[in-house]
């Protein structure tokens, strides 16, 4: 059986005024059908570039990519009826027509006949919870409803592969949870459906995905089920340190590897999660903090979480704020 999506040594570089950026490098992936597959990584990891290539919006500069066995470069026309894309950062659609009319419009782009379109629109409106606003002009909708409408649009052609690029970005906790529930239900309902989801919310990926690829700087750094990935740090210990720094000493934080940190801007207190092989390593970290006038407010031991897998793989380069769950 062909894969829902497959890439072979895929690469993409962008050139801009003499500088070359490697957005993807040597990415090889096989995504089976009937699952939610996660692409996890910090900003600039290459997740969206990969999605753009697979959805025929962007061509690779090296390697190959296939969707349902079709080449994204030469057989884009065969891929398009099989896919759809929902990008959380966008709110597509036309403000002066209703939700229902917008969905009808997109169904026509997929060539649905009148009866099928009518039935499909009715179904997605109910699935996504748009019934109460189906006759509202799109411009009058709240962000949450617009995101739902965007998801409904992505489902209207019943794609074999649905690409979700940060689908819950900017949403409140309740709306995000609803969207996640909807996606899970949609995949469960028909075992052949595949969702390829990008996110930098670890909890989201862990909750939803059967398999996850972690990307960093355009490369895949790990791939497996959330449980498999979690086993990467199962033997490790996690130290959670709360520390205050004078602002001039903040660069010292970069010396602490494998760390994931958040900062309370009001108090300048950092909460640092560090994956260590041995608890004794924490003494070295405390030394680093205090050497420049920093103060350790607390030091506690914690069980490794999926977040720590991410930190270990990505290196804690990006400060990620708490995830809504």
């Amino acid at each position: 059986m062909t894969f829902a999506a497959e890439t072979v040594n895929l690469g993409r570089i962008f050139k801009n005024r003499g500088s070359v950026v490697k957005a993807l490098e040597d990415v090889s992936l096989q995504i089976g059908r009937g699952q939610i597959f996660g692409l996890l990584g910090p900003n600039g990891a290459g997740k969206t570039t990969l999605v753009k290539i697979l959805t025929t919006l962007l061509m690779p500069t090296s390697g190959k990519a296939y969707v349902y066995g079709y080449d994204v470069v030469n057989e884009a026309a065969k891929i398009r009826p099989l896919i759809n894309l929902v990008s959380g950062a966008d709110t597509p659609g036309y403000g002066l027509i209703t939700v229902r009319e917008n969905l009808w419009f997109y169904s026509m782009l997929y060539g649905l006949d009148r009866a099928t379109a009518k039935q499909r629109i009715k179904t997605v409106i109910e699935q996504v919870g748009l019934k109460e606003v189906e006759n509202e002009l799109l411009r009058n909708l709240s962000t949450g409803y617009r995101q739902r409408m965007n998801l409904a649009r992505g489902l209207v052609n019943e794609p074999a592969v649905l690409f979700l690029d940060e689908p819950t970005i900017g949403l409140d906790a309740v709306s995000a949870r609803n969207i996640r529930r909807l996606i899970k239900e949609w995949v469960k309902g028909d075992s052949g459906r595949t969702v390829i989801l990008t996110s930098h919310y670890m909890a989201e990926v862990e909750e939803m995905c059967a398999k996850v690829a972690v990307l960093n700087k355009g490369r895949i750094v790990a791939i497996g089920s959330p449980a498999e990935l979690r086993s990467l740090v199962a033997e490790k210990t996690v130290a959670v340190i709360e520390a205050w720094f004078p602002s001039e000493a903040e660069p010292i934080l970069d010396k602490i590897g494998n760390a994931y940190r958040t900062r309370d801007p009001a108090t300048n207190v950092y909460r640092i999660r560090v994956v260590v092989d041995d608890w004794d390593e924490t003494a070295e970290i405390v030394n680093i903090i205090t050497s420049r006038g920093g103060k350790v407010l607390s030091l506690t031991k914690a069980l490794p979480s999926f977040e720590d897998v991410y930190v270990k793989l990505v290196g804690g380069e990006e400060i990620v704020t708490d995830v809504e769950t």
């Binding site: 398009r80 894309l85 950062a89 597509p92 997929y110």
Partner: peptide
Amino acid sequence: ESGNLDLYIIAPI
């Protein structure tokens, strides 16, 4: 700007 162009490109038309 609104994200519609991407959707036109990926639509089978």
